[in-house]
Structure formats: C-alpha cells, structure tokens
Amino acid sequence: MNYTLHQLQVFLKVTQTESITKAAEELHLTQPAVSIQLKNFQEQFDIPLTEVVGRKLYITDFGKEIALAAEKIVEQVNAINFKTASFKGQLTGRLKISVVSTGKYVMPYFLADFLKANPGIELKLDVTNKAMVINSLDENEIDFALVSILPEAMQVEAIPLMENKLYLVANKDFDLIQKVYGKEIFEKITLIFREHGSGTRLTMERYLRKNNIPVSKKLELTSNEAVKQAVIAGLGCSVMPLIGLRNEIKDGDLKIIPVNDLPIVTTWNLIYLKNKRFSPVAEAFLEYLHLEKENIIKQYFNWFEGVH
C-alpha cells in the first residue's frame, strides 16, 4: 500500500458526492485529475471500491468501509494542522453550524467578524430545512443550529438572537384597496406553502389552524427562494419571513399585505445540545455572541426592526 493523503481526500469526496463531477467541483480540480487519482487509489486494492451502473457511480460495500477509514485519517491530519496552528498562538479548529433555509440571511452577519479575527478557524455551514437541521443536531454532527421554532422532543440550550417576523406578501400588481385586511383575505388568494419539514410552513400552518382559516387554493414549493420567485411572478401570495425580502420590497417587486394579527413573530435562536462538550472554537464563538450580538443587530438589522 502506497496511497497518498491526496488520494484519500479525493476518494472520500467521491464517496460523499457519489459523482466525479461534483467531487471535482468541490475540490476545485478538473474531472480528469479526480479520475486519475481515483484510478491510482483503486489500483492498490484487489476489490472494487466503486462501480458504474448505467451512467451512475455507486460505492461498493468495501468502498464504504475504506471511506470510513479514510475519513478518520483525514480528520486526524486536520487535527494535527489545527494543533500546529494553536501552538503558534492562533485559535484554530472547525466550527460546524446548520441553519434553516431563511437563516442564511441571518447567520453570516453573526459569523463574519468572528472569522475575520480568527483566520485559523474552518467553518462548515449547512443550509437546509428545519427537519434536516434538527436531525444533524440530534446526531451530534454539528456544534450549533439556527432555528426559529425550538424542537419539542430534544433537550437543548438556546441563545435568542433576534426577532423573526413573517408577513403576508404579494407581487407588485396586487391592488391594496384596504388599509388593513381581515383574515378572510386568505380565502380569496392562492396561498403558496413551503414543503413539509420547513419551519416557515409549520409557523404558517399553526397560524391558519389557530384562526380557523380555510385555504381554498394552494401551491407547494421546496425552497424559500422558489416561493419568493413564484410570488413575484404572480402565482399567488405567501406568508414569508421579512428577513429575506429586503431588496424585493425596496425595489417594489413585492409588497406587504397588511392583515390583522400579522406579522407572526418568532425568535431566531442558536441552539445546542444540553451538556454539549464544546471545542475551544465553539466556546469562543459563544462568548463572542454574548458580547457582540446587540451590536451586530444594530449594525445590520435596523431596517428589519423598523418595518411594521
């Protein structure tokens, strides 16, 4: 056996993506370069690591076992690199955070200055729906999760960051003939929902149930951006977090429909497992948030607080 660290890293990325093309993109390599490294790595084993059926790449059971070993080796190499940097007086390590899809408009502002001050930190930020975020937290795969609805079946600690306001929004052609609408407006519009597992959808459904509001026509889309574009195109209206609509409202592509009892107000919380043993990086980030979160809100989210 004479495989290199680079071959291990390439093979691991191929197993994670199940695609030479995607692996090449994530590693910033060409597809031929990835194929050559994979071929050279395979030549050191008598048992196939991968197989191609049709045009799809599959990882064999043996390949999956080798990938697990490769992951441990790569993690140990990263740990050596982090320890080397720490002896030079730098805060180093990996910070792993998962955020719900709308949280991508929030979390970067709470990370930017912290990462600039600590260039030795490697960030892994995953953006997905609420169900996947909670699963990653439950499996202890991440340090923190950003959610607007706290999980009911898990023991977590929470750091409130800022308010999350959800309004009923329509496109620029919606005729606002009333200053304030009653709940009956929901019976007259096509309502666009996020997919099941989304925190935004759960919040909207709770509001509709609480107020006994029937929905006559609805669409379902699988991302916040898709919902936004559908509303702009005039396919319907939706209850959406204001945090992701700043430019569209400013440019006049979207407008808020004033409705009694709206906005729905929740709170963005950074959560972590109770009794979680933090790395020095995660501990430092917690301390940074406690010291700086109010300044961050004032600097970047004043516009948000002023919308009614």
Results as ranks from 00 to 15, higher is better:
residue 122 E to R: 08
residue 220 E to F: 12
residue 148 S to V: 05
residue 146 L to M: 12
residue 302 N to W: 09
residue 261 D to A: 11
residue 112 A to G: 00
residue 93 G to N: 06
residue 270 L to N: 03
residue 227 V to Y: 03
residue 95 L to H: 05
residue 121 I to F: 07
residue 68 L to R: 11
residue 103 G to F: 05
residue 217 K to S: 15
residue 72 K to F: 12
residue 218 K to S: 15
residue 17 T to M: 14
residue 265 V to P: 03
residue 122 E to V: 11
residue 17 T to H: 09
residue 293 K to A: 08
residue 171 N to E: 06
residue 14 V to I: 15
residue 283 E to Q: 13
residue 33 A to D: 00
residue 242 L to Q: 00
residue 110 F to Y: 15
residue 78 N to K: 13
residue 72 K to M: 13
residue 246 R to D: 05
residue 71 E to K: 15
residue 85 A to K: 15
residue 177 I to N: 08
residue 38 L to I: 13
residue 52 V to Y: 09
residue 76 Q to R: 12
residue 45 F to M: 05
residue 45 F to T: 02
residue 298 K to Y: 10
residue 228 K to G: 02
residue 123 L to S: 07
residue 153 A to Y: 14
residue 160 P to S: 10
residue 48 P to K: 09
residue 73 I to E: 04
residue 202 L to E: 08
residue 111 L to W: 04
residue 118 N to K: 09
residue 2 N to D: 13
residue 271 I to N: 02
residue 125 L to S: 08
residue 5 L to R: 13
residue 243 I to V: 15
residue 118 N to V: 06
residue 272 Y to R: 04
residue 62 F to C: 05
residue 132 M to A: 14
residue 155 Q to W: 12
residue 68 L to F: 08
residue 263 P to A: 13
residue 161 L to H: 04
residue 217 K to F: 15
residue 102 T to I: 03
residue 48 P to R: 09
residue 92 T to V: 11
residue 142 I to C: 01
residue 252 G to F: 11
residue 299 Q to V: 00
residue 31 Q to D: 07
residue 296 I to M: 04
residue 237 C to Y: 05
residue 179 K to Q: 12
residue 257 I to R: 03
residue 232 I to P: 01
residue 58 Y to S: 10
residue 235 L to Q: 07
residue 269 N to V: 08
residue 83 K to N: 09
residue 181 Y to Q: 01
residue 102 T to K: 02
residue 117 A to H: 10
residue 62 F to Q: 03
residue 49 L to G: 01
residue 3 Y to W: 15
residue 132 M to E: 11
residue 114 F to G: 02
residue 178 Q to S: 05
residue 241 P to K: 11
residue 29 L to H: 06
residue 144 F to E: 02
residue 44 Q to T: 07
residue 120 G to T: 00
residue 36 I to V: 14
residue 132 M to C: 04
residue 280 P to V: 12
residue 225 E to Q: 14
residue 273 L to Y: 03
residue 181 Y to N: 02
residue 114 F to W: 06
residue 14 V to L: 06
residue 213 I to M: 10
residue 290 H to K: 15
residue 152 E to T: 11
residue 210 K to C: 00
residue 173 D to E: 10
residue 166 L to S: 01
residue 133 V to E: 02
residue 253 D to Y: 15
residue 47 I to P: 02
residue 281 V to A: 02
residue 101 S to Q: 11
residue 280 P to G: 12
residue 110 F to W: 07
residue 16 Q to V: 06
residue 162 M to K: 06
residue 111 L to G: 01
residue 174 F to K: 03
residue 274 K to D: 11
residue 22 K to F: 08
residue 120 G to I: 05
residue 270 L to D: 03
residue 193 F to D: 02
residue 51 E to Y: 15
residue 70 A to W: 03
residue 31 Q to W: 04
residue 164 N to L: 10
residue 126 D to R: 13
residue 144 F to A: 00
residue 251 D to R: 12
residue 261 D to W: 12
residue 88 K to F: 08
residue 237 C to S: 12
